[in-house]
Design a protein around this nucleic acid. Structure first.
Length: 430
RNA sequence: GGGGAGAUUCCAGAGCGGUCAAAUGGGGCAGACUGUAAAUCUGUUGGCGAUGCCUUCGGAGGUUCGAAUCCUCCUCUCCCCA
């Protein structure tokens, strides 16, 4: 099996420029994907492009990660309906460093002649003057060509700044630069990047022809955008994006996101986000169908991704936490849990502090849930939820009349509050 | 420049002088059923010291015992004709 065949059975190819497959089988090929430095962490929406690079490297090719220090300053109009806010140089630099660290976990940057490399396009744009750019690069691409792009056409009605219009040229030049300086012949990305990538290949072809009279061929490969079966957006939960940074999305919530996928999504995503072979996935799918309640696919997927993004230690902790929170955990079990274990288990759940004195004196559950802990935004909502029998303290359902007092404390200082089935809060006394 | 339509609670969208904290749908939250799934069904969805009170219907004034509803001005959006 080769790289393209691998992607094909996994359903990771949306579009492929003719000749790409031939190029890849001809020689070790360097390929790049660009990442936008819009945040200081990547999120699981970035995972698919990352996996493209991972597969690429596994098949002996050379991955290049481009972090868009320069392009990030311009803003990609693809898929956007509005002009984007510009980020400051400092902010971009900061975000870049955060993303860099995360990418290191996926690719081998150390050994072999196909070791991954990371580049920042700000390095070649920083000293490139505007006039030089429009003379050297702009000359080879017509406005007519640029206007025909879907990303531009969509914005013609509502308006688009010259800055964003220029974006495709800037990205196109990246490809040219990498082609020339790093022998990078392939650019990959999400399907929304097709137009930008093709501008790059076109620019390379024309610039080589116009300047040197030689033929040059560059290639493009895009993966589909990830969608969920129910139409909701992949990678979002109630709390927002699912980030790779444990400080932004705790490993617990990260694991839970994958574990909670529907059967349909799990079967789909396990091909995209894990390295299990076709046979292994077939086997897992079979086992899953025989005993769907065990959620074998979800567990295998959640485990694999959590291990790669976080660590084995995080994974163990998170499984432990999940089994206590969702397994046969009882009030008695909670009371017997040692403090360090308790804290480890609840690392990912929202926490709040409350004055010890208040608990000692005893306090009505409604006030406790609102004023003192902020678990509910208003008393009305707290009461409503209590009436719906949806609030538990230390895994026991409580009513509106319940009083929180010293007897509720676990390890003499913690209280576990549950709203509904899945939402946990840990209250500490101080 | 001329003519018309509109701005309502998270969103869409009713209401057109009291019975309006405001129909209905969507979304959200929760419950039942399950497998921490999907589908389905049910409840709930401004705040509070709560058979009442307070703040909300683009903004500012006004009419009225009483205004989301009527009048004036302002701001913004959309459509049609130039």
């Amino acid at each position: 099996m080769n790289f393209i065949e691998e992607l094909r059975w996994r359903g990771m190819i949306h579009d492929l420029m003719p000749g790409t497959e031939e190029q890849l089988s001809r020689e070790m090929t360097a390929a790049y994907i660009g990442f936008d430095p819009t945040a200081d962490s990547l999120h699981i929406g970035n995972l698919l492009p990352i996996m493209l690079l991972v597969h690429l490297q596994r098949y002996g090719h050379k991955p290049i990660v481009l972090v868009g220090g320069a392009t990030g300053m311009v803003g990609d109009p693809s898929g956007k309906t509005e002009e984007r806010k510009l980020l400051s140089i400092e902010q971009i630099q900061y975000n870049l460093n955060g993303q860099k660290k995360q990418l290191m976990k996926f690719l081998n940057f150390e050994t072999g002649n196909n070791r991954a490399e990371i580049v920042n396009n700000f390095d070649w744009f920083r000293d490139y003057s505007f006039l030089d750019f429009i003379r050297d690069v702009g000359k080879h691409i017509t406005v007519n060509y640029m206007m025909s792009k879907e990303s531009v056409k969509k914005r013609l009605e509502t308006g688009m700044s010259f800055t964003e219009f220029s974006y495709q040229l800037v990205q196109g030049y990246d490809f040219y630069w990498l082609y020339r300086n790093m022998n990078c012949k392939l650019q990959m990305g999400g399907s929304d990047q097709w137009g930008n990538i093709v501008t790059g290949t076109e620019l390379i072809r024309r610039m080589y022809f116009d300047l040197e009279g030689s033929e040059a061929s560059a290639y493009a490969l895009t993966c589909p955008l990830v969608t969920k079966a129910d139409g909701s957006k992949f990678g979002k939960s109630e709390g927002g994006n699912i980030w790779l940074d444990p400080a932004k999305t705790s490993p617990y919530l990260f694991y839970q996101y994958w574990l909670n996928l529907s059967d349909e999504d799990a079967a789909h995503f396990i091909r995209l986000f894990t390295l299990f072979s076709q046979e292994e996935i077939g086997q897992l799918t079979l086992e899953h169908q025989n005993a769907p309640h065990l959620r074998i696919l979800q567990k295998a997927l959640a485990k694999d991704v959590t291990l790669r993004v976080h660590s084995e230690q995080d994974y163990n902790m998170v499984v432990e936490a999940s089994s206590i929170l969702f397994g046969q955990g009882t009030t008695a079990m909670l009371h017997n849990l040692p403090e360090d274990m308790l804290l480890a288990v609840f690392e990912g759940v929202p926490q709040s502090e409350v004055n010890r004195q208040i608990i000692a004196e005893g306090i009505g559950i409604v006030d406790f849930l609102t004023e003192h802990t902020g678990i509910f935004p208003s008393k009305g909502e707290a009461r409503r939820t209590l009436k719906e029998n949806a609030v538990s303290v230390n895994k026991e359902k409580v009513s509106e009349e319940f009083t929180v007092d010293g007897k509720c404390l676990l390890n003499d200082r913690y209280i576990l509050v549950q709203k509904g089935k899945k939402n946990y809060y840990l209250v500490k006394t101080r």
